[in-house]
Design a protein around this nucleic acid. Structure first.
Length: 271
DNA sequence: CACGGATCCTGATGGC
DNA sequence: TGCCATCAGGATCCGT
C-alpha cells in the first residue's frame, strides 16, 4: 500500500510533534509480520528523538534504541492527542507525553520492531539489503546502470525488489516506466545507457512529485494527521486497463508479473 | 548471487 | 441475499 511517498508524507506529518516526547505506555494487539521483540514495558520512559525513513521503513530514534515501523500493504499511522478507542485492526499503540501513535493495519503485513541500534541483527535483517534512496544524492546514474547490468529479469521486477533502489512500489513502478517509455517486461540488463538515464530521472520525478503533492494517488491513504489522501497526481497507466493513454490515446494494457499487476501503454512503451 | 513462486492476512468487489 | 473466486499499495523465505 504505502510506497515511499506515502511513508515520507506520514513521517513529515508527525515528526515535529513526536520529537522530544516521552513514552508513557505501549501496547501490541494481534501479531504483525514482526512484533517488537521486547516487552512493551521496555519502551516506557524512552524519549523519541527523531523520525527518519529508510525505504518504506520509518525509524523512530529513541534515547536508547530505536523502533522500526513498516506499514506493509494496508497499514497507516495516526498520531494525535485525542484518539477514539483502539479498533479491531489497531495493532500497536504508543501513548506519549505529546500524543498517541497508533498503527492501523487490517492485513497485518506491517511490522513494529525494537532494535538496540541500527546494527543489531534484526535491524540488519530488515534494512541490510536495501538499495539506494532514490531521492538522495547517492542515487547516481553510473551505479544504477551497473546494478541493472547484473539483472537478467524484467525491469519492473527489479524495481519492486528494492535491492537496487528502494521505495518504488507497484504503482510507482508502472508510472516511472511509463514516464521513461520503457516496457515493464524489458530485461534490465539489456537497457541502453540513455534509457536507463531516462528511468533514473523518471523515478526521481514521479516520487518527488508524489511527496510534494502530499502523497499520491492512493484511494484510502491518509497521513498521520488524519488528513485523507487527495488525488492530486493522476496515474498515467496504473489501474487504467482498457482506458485511453493520456499521451497517445492507445488502450492501456494490464499484465501480471510475479503475481502483481503491471500497467503500460503498448504504444508509448514499445520495448 | 540471482531467479521464480509460495506465503503471511483481511476486506472489497464482482459473478452467479 | 449468500457463496465463491479474485484481487489489493509488500517483501521475505525457500528451492533451484
Amino acid at each position: 500500500m504505502p510506497e515511499l511517498p506515502e511513508v515520507e508524507v506520514t513521517r513529515l506529518s508527525f515528526v515535529n510533534q513526536i520529537s522530544g516526547a516521552k513514552v508513557l505506555s505501549a501496547r501490541l494487539g494481534k501479531p504483525l509480520r514482526w512484533s517488537l521483540g521486547c516487552p512493551e514495558n521496555d519502551l516506557v520512559g524512552r524519549t523519541v528523538l527523531d523520525v527518519r525513513r529508510r525505504g518504506k521503513y520509518l525509524l523512530l530514534d529513541l534515547d536508547e534504541g530505536l523502533l522500526l515501523i513498516h506499514l506493509g500493504m494496508s497499514g497507516s499511522l495516526i498520531f494525535a492527542q485525542q484518539l477514539s478507542p483502539d479498533g479491531a485492526h489497531d495493532h500497536f499503540a504508543m501513548v506519549t507525553s505529546r500524543g498517541t501513535l497508533r498503527l492501523h493495519d487490517p492485513r497485518r503485513f506491517g511490522a513494529v520492531v525494537h532494535a538496540t541500534h541500527e546494527d543489531d541483527p534484526m535491524a540488519r535483517k530488515l534494512l541490510g539489503r536495501l538499495g539506494v534512496e532514490p531521492l538522495s544524492d547517492s542515487f547516481v546514474l553510473p551505479q544504477f546502470q551497473a546494478r541493472l547490468k547484473t539483472r537478467n529479469t524484467a525491469i519492473k521486477q527489479v524495481l519492486l525488489a528494492g535491492d537496487v533502489v528502494v521505495g518504488v512500489g507497484n504503482i510507482y513502478a508502472s508510472e516511472a516506466l511509463f514516464l521513461a517509455g520503457i516496457r515493464p517486461t524489458a530485461k534490465a540488463a539489456k537497457l541502453s545507457g540513455p534509457r536507463i538515464a531516462k528511468l533514473h530521472a523518471a523515478i526521481r520525478d514521479v516520487l518527488a512529485r508524489a511527496v510534494a503533492t502530499g502523497g499520491s494517488t492512493l484511494r484510502d491513504f491518509s497521513s498521520a494527521n488524519g488528513e485523507s489522501g487527495y488525488f492530486q497526481l493522476e496515474a498515467m497507466v496504473y489501474a487504467r486497463e482498457g482506458q485511453a493513454c493520456r499521451v497517445c490515446g492507445s488502450a492501456v494494457k494490464a499484465i501480471k508479473q510475479g503475481q502483481r499487476s503491471t500497467f503500460y501503454c503498448p504504444s508509448c512503451q514499445k520495448r
